[in-house]
Design a protein around this nucleic acid. Sequence first.
DNA 1: ACAAAAGTGTTCGCTATACACCCATGA
DNA 2: TCATGGGTGTATAGCGAACACTTTTGT
Lengths: 240, 240
Amino acid sequence: MKLNPHVSVDCVIFGFDSLSLKVLLIDRNLGLKTNKQTAPKSLKLPGSLVYDDEDINTAANRVLKDLTGLENIYLQQFHVFGSPKRLNKKEDLAWLQSQTKMKINRVVTIAYYSLIKLHLSLPCEGKVIWHDVMNLPELAFDHNEIVQKGLLTLRLELNNKPIAFELLPKKFTIRQLQKLYEIILGKNLDNRNFRKSISKWEHILSLKEKEMKVAHKPAQYFKFDKRIYNKMNKEYLTEQ
Amino acid sequence: MKLNPHVSVDCVIFGFDSLSLKVLLIDRNLGLKTNKQTAPKSLKLPGSLVYDDEDINTAANRVLKDLTGLENIYLQQFHVFGSPKRLNKKEDLAWLQSQTKMKINRVVTIAYYSLIKLHLSLPCEGKVIWHDVMNLPELAFDHNEIVQKGLLTLRLELNNKPIAFELLPKKFTIRQLQKLYEIILGKNLDNRNFRKSISKWEHILSLKEKEMKVAHKPAQYFKFDKRIYNKMNKEYLTEQ
DNA sequence: ACAAAAGTGTTCGCTATACACCCATGA
DNA sequence: TCATGGGTGTATAGCGAACACTTTTGT
């Protein structure tokens, strides 16, 4: 099974820690033996060339699984970056050739975004960097552009698909949900209006459970019910 | 300059003739000398492999220009089709190899959709088929799937971008605009409510001109003003 | 008692929807 | 004069936005 040197996938993996939105980055100098202390960080998105007989979605899932051990994760293609100038930085091309041991001229990359629950402990700790999605440093290739486009896509899809719940723990408070919306949309929301609108969403169920040991009125926990969501959504689509 | 045998672009080119939404197809048996009369139609979307040093957007524009002579046309990437099984039909693979004279294993294709004004006379008449977008016959490769996804994308973007005017003549009637919306959205709209809502769109200007020689009350012509649209849209985006 | 976040209602303007008739023209 | 599509207004329900205070807990 041979890697195709012309087509790759790159994953923008988002996570949410109740305070800010993070993106998973890899330091490609981390494994180097030389200059361990002094080597500058060289951050990039996780990605891979695609195998000759591999579906591109499978390739994106493979990258995600190899890195985090997770499967059946929300993962969606959002844009192709196909400029021949993508590899113009010398160090990027050099790194790619040394990694793959292939001669590489140009790579068209298909960008995916993925949403994972950051509070779960993953087997990739230490090997990866969760960086705040705002104020990213310069990344390899055109990866800054890819993250920006991914964030924009996330923002546009927030109102069409139940993606917020992919980023939150199974039980969450309204405050957490609102904070997540505020970060992704990039604006503050009115707490009363927010509660009012989600109280109409039948796919959000309140649990009996409340927060414990917090120095304020404890918040109610809620959960997302996928079955109800799908049922409602189906009705909505068919009545049009 | 060499074609890259792994990456292609395919274009779903939509047109609107005031009655139905059409898609541009090519009969790849049309040029064959043998069986001129009896050869079955073998329809496909226009597309091309990408040159080694060519940007993918440039490649899509090239396909469009070569076919229609048109430049600066609305053209947008919407999905990548990357299953290794895309070329599973024997006749598809054979045709591709004979066309390109290259050995081809798998091709990842980036699908674009494009909107053109069908009432303009194009240099491709006779060479292409404008087929109603509904009830398409079986197309080559996975091109049926590509058209369906393109149509879905068009539907979703209709409310976010001024794409309807790319399909209409420069001056158009409200009825034409409504008909286009109805076809793309797949449902009937109330004429009074439709007129009411677009009368609020400041980027649609009524012209002095009316229809002539029609056997009913002549309709007012309108035009789309891109400058006003951009101004409004900019204000909308910044005030969020 | 205080700090800190949870939770709760009302008003107003806008928008979506439903619905029926007269008008201008060519044939 | 008839057939054809153009063009018009009103009433209602629901939604989004603005806005301030009380409640519950831990310290």
